[in-house]
């Protein structure tokens, strides 16, 4: 197996300073928000890599950097061995770009209401001057809609059907790699099940590779081959979903698993997790999770833990061994 996507020390900072004049008058310093900090991972060809985290953890920012909607501040993204940021050969960049597509969260906002479905779907190909004869009809049938739907406008469809149109559009340029940013969070459970099943089928049929971004650990467990857990822009743990559910090594992952509501958890009493995600402009020193971590020691407050290999998983925690030892999965 080869890595289709390689991410190395990816960092993204946003400038959230006040406007220039305010800064001068009020003598304020420049302020930087570090949305993603030194994240590294590989995505093997034909697998699904999931990024999971709460709001503000930087998961969407990573997705956008992978498709090239944002430039990294530091670090590199290589897709098929080509670094889109530094590659001098335009033809190479162009070839790789057409292999990447994205599906967005809100199917109501990501389809142009004034365009017919046919035009929406074939646009990724038409924009490059490709042949689009009969393409929209074929794709619509592949995603479970009917060929006649190509003549309609987006408002004639429900949320789930719109998400199918978004998937059809993503498939039009025959990509190898699709970034799915919360593709089902706006959908009802029964529709979510339909869309998730469709995505699994298409992955088999076309040999696709997915980056699946979600806040929902159960959905991620269902879809992913590898899961990366993000906290405040840092990758804190990476493992297979089975491993992650059975033996989470990072205290944050353990907290996420404990607090996720369970379908069979009737009347379950849990001690809810303490605290909230800290301000990303002034993240805590050392490990970002230390103010909420029950196992934190002095070292956690000063030294940022690096990702290290612990029995089949990669964990960024000084006290991972202790965390594994004391963890008992929820009943």
């Amino acid at each position: 197996m080869t890595a289709l996507v390689t991410v190395r020390d990816l960092t993204r900072r946003f400038d959230v300073s006040k406007p220039w004049l305010n800064r001068v008058i009020e003598r304020l310093p420049k302020r930087k928000l570090v949305a993603v900090s030194k994240v590294s991972f590989d995505i093997e060809e034909g697998t699904t890599y999931a990024l999971v985290g709460e709001s503000g953890s930087g998961k969407s920012t990573i997705g956008k950097m992978l498709v090239g909607l944002l430039d990294p501040s530091e670090g590199a993204v290589e897709i098929e061995g080509v670094n889109l940021d530094t590659e001098p050969d335009a033809a190479k960049i162009d070839a790789v770009r057409s292999d990447i597509q994205m599906i967005f969260q809100d199917p109501y906002a990501s389809l142009n209401p004034r365009w017919k479905v046919r035009d929406i779907i074939v646009e990724p190909v038409a924009a490059r001057g490709g042949d689009t004869e009969g393409m929209a009809e074929k794709l619509l049938e592949q995603v479970g809609l009917s060929a006649d739907d190509a003549k309609k406008f987006p408002h004639e469809f429900s949320g789930g059907q719109r998400q199918r149109i978004c998937i059809a559009r993503a498939l039009a340029s025959e990509p190898k790699f699709i970034v799915c940013d919360e593709p089902t969070s706006a959908l009802d459970v029964s529709v979510q099940a339909q869309v998730l099943n469709l995505m699994s089928d298409l992955k088999e049929d076309f040999g696709l590779t997915y980056l699946f971004i979600s806040h929902d650990l159960t959905v991620v467990t269902h879809m992913a081959d590898t899961v990366g857990v993000l906290y405040l822009g840092r990758l804190v743990e990476e493992a297979s979903p089975e491993h992650l559910n059975a033996r989470p090594a990072h205290p944050y992952t353990q907290m996420l698993l404990d607090s996720a509501p369970r379908l069979d958890g009737f009347g379950r009493e849990i001690a809810p997790p303490q605290g909230e995600i800290p301000d990303p402009i002034n993240p805590p020193a050392g490990c970002a999770f230390n103010p909420r971590c029950p196992l934190a020691i002095d070292r956690c407050r000063t030294e940022r833990p690096e990702l290290r290999q612990i029995d089949g998983a990669r964990v960024a925690c000084h006290r991972a061994e202790e965390a594994i030892a004391q963890y008992s999965p929820p009943e």
């Binding site: 339909q194 099943n197 159960t218």
Partner: peptide, 13 residues
């Protein structure tokens, strides 16, 4: 049946 659950793993929904 259509709600994904960790205990069901990768079973088709």
């Amino acid at each position: 049946g259509s709600t994904p659950a960790a205990s069901r793993g990768k079973q088709r929904l």
